[in-house]
Design a protein around this nucleic acid. Structure first.
Length: 497
RNA sequence: GGCCGGUUGGUCAAGGGGUCAAGACGCCGCCCUCUCACGGCGGAAACAAGGGUUCGAUUCCCUUACCGGCUACCA
């Protein structure tokens, strides 16, 4: 066997990989695993590889490959090697590797060494091995086929009897494996099932393909989810059987929803693309997800990809699961929006602004107004919708304690200020502000007693982006006056009722 | 059921035998102010429980509880 032909990277570089199954949209947990693998590689100046684990023919989803590439690209994770970028360790798709007989070859080596064996047991027999305990069924293979003679095996093989190849786990002793994060984990070999290496369809199982590929592709740091922790000792058995060096294991804690359950489709923010659809920026998602299970030294949390690369330390990854708090992601996204330069911001925000307030001429001013007030782009319609149409509102909104206004006073003020505004021509913020300030002074009113009624009248909202005069500038004279007149009617009607 | 993990404010988290137990989100209050937002300042809020070890445990050990994972011809 030529398991010594493994290529060793001449620079002895750190090599990590992201190895998703093409089964649909990319989960944020997967994204974080990919990110950590990427950061480990980049931090060390090593390389990052993409490998496709498509050994389960039934779960394959059409188009899933595109999603993987798209997600990686949006997230800013550049790959050095992968299906579309051969780095000398290919192929990078497991079904291709399977067709080349790679897994079969290694499985046969194990059989020759006595570390694995053919198993011809039927589903029915396997079923009969199951025992009930509590509300679940459990089965441990009984090594039945290990007792088959060479002749029997050859006969069944020749006859084409369906079979799998199983690992021959010793009954005695313990197996210990080491994770940089979780430390040593030791289990009794008696607890370990004779896991299937090659399925009856000829494809390897994840457990087997993973070990073969990580080794033959020169992976130095295996980054994966916590769900593999319990089965990891089995992998060591495989490495030992081949006489291969065990890579560094970096297991990541689970990311859960607010109910501490596995993130699901139902939680609505389970995948990277869902989040993009909800108006989040890829940079913010990446930043946020990086901080779920790891934290940098110091107190800053807004970190660019370059900063993440510089600061990331896989030795400081948390052990406990983290709740995905969409509220904090929203805040972080808002921070990213505020930091965007004009060009990038307008490009993202304009479509939403156009849709929210098509009749307002100065779209950029609207977008500017929104910039410090939104957390995702999807907040724009709600924020700016009143520019298009005054919503139904209650006149109680004219009552404001601090501004010292009431509906009655508001009506009085609006009636008085209307002719003045009709006569006024310069509908720019500064001019209007100066004008209204003077109006207030002349009439013995506080600023707020003039501004609040006007702002309410032109917006119909208790809270608006920008003050009364800013809104009037954007609405223009005609629309502003129309809205104030409508407010006077509304208040008059209410007063008479 | 067995095995393997985990448990610091509501959430993300730092710390790790002696601390007033960081910081962030959220929440509350104050300031700024033509409302809101931004920005600034301040506040409430945590070591799962019980046993050890120790002069001293949030930190080390054990037990329990709770949560999660694995126990597939899924990854």
């Amino acid at each position: 066997m030529d398991n010594q032909t493994v290529k060793i990277d001449p620079r002895n570089n750190v090599r990590t990989r992201f190895a998703p199954s093409p089964t649909g949209r990319m989960h944020v947990g997967n994204l974080r695993t990919a990110l950590y693998a990427y950061l480990i590689a980049r931090h060390a100046g090593g390389s990052f590889m993409l490998r496709i684990e498509d050994t389960d023919q039934e779960r394959f989803v059409e188009g899933a490959l595109d999603i993987i590439y798209r997600t990686l690209a949006y997230a800013g994770l550049s790959i050095d090697e992968g299906p579309d970028k051969d780095g000398g360790y290919g192929p990078y798709v497991q079904s291709d590797r399977c067709r080349m007989g790679i897994y079969q070859k290694y499985a046969e080596q194990l059989i020759a060494q006595g570390n694995a064996y053919y198993c011809f047991c039927t589903k029915e027999r396997l079923e009969s091995l199951k025992t009930n305990a509590g509300d679940k069924e459990f089965a441990m293979y009984d090594k039945h086929c290990l007792g088959l003679s060479k002749e029997e095996i050859a006969e069944k093989l020749a006859a084409g009897v369906p079979h799998v190849i199983r690992l021959n786990v010793p009954h005695e002793g313990t197996t210990t494996f080491h994770d940089v994060n979780y430390g040593d984990i030791t289990v009794d070999n008696a607890e370990l099932d004779d896991m299937i290496l090659i399925k009856s369809d000829g494809f390897p199982t994840y457990n087997f393909a993973n070990v073969i590929d990580d080794h033959t592709m020169g992976i130095t740091h295996v980054v994966r989810g916590n769900e593999y922790l319990a089965s990891s000792p089995k992998y060591n058995l495989l490495y030992d059987a081949f006489g291969w060096e065990v890579p560094v294991y970096v297991h990541c804690p689970l990311i859960t929803d607010e109910n501490r359950q596995k993130l699901s489709k139902r939680s609505g923010h389970s995948s990277f693309e869902d989040l993009l659809d909800q108006g989040f920026l890829p940079e913010a998602i990446v930043n946020f997800v990086a901080l779920l299970g790891w934290s940098p030294e110091g107190n800053s949390e807004i970190l660019s990809m370059d900063e993440l690369i510089e600061k990331f330390d896989f030795l400081k990854i948390n052990k406990s699961p983290a709740v995905f708090d969409i509220g904090k992601l929203r805040w972080m996204n808002g921070e990213y929006i505020k930091k965007m330069d004009d060009a990038a911001y307008y490009e993202k925000a304009m479509p939403y602004v156009e849709a929210a307030a098509p009749s307002i001429r100065d779209k950029k001013a609207l977008a500017d107004l929104a910039k410090s007030r939104i957390e995702t782009f999807c907040d724009i319609p709600e924020l700016l919708g009143f520019f298009e149409k005054v919503p139904d509102y209650d006149i109680s909104m004219y009552t404001h304690k601090k501004m010292k206004t009431t509906p009655a006073l508001s009506l009085e003020v609006l009636k008085k200020v209307l002719p003045a505004l009709e006569a006024f021509e310069d509908y720019t913020n500064d001019a209007l502000y100066a004008f209204l300030q003077q109006f207030a002074a002349e009439n013995g009113l506080k600023n707020g007693q003039v501004m609040w009624p006007i702002r309410t009248a032109v917006s119909g909202k208790a809270m608006t982006p920008g003050g009364a005069t800013q809104l009037m500038e954007l609405l223009g004279k005609e629309a502003s006056l129309t809205r104030i007149r409508a407010a006077i009617d509304k208040l008059t009607a209410a007063a008479e009722a």
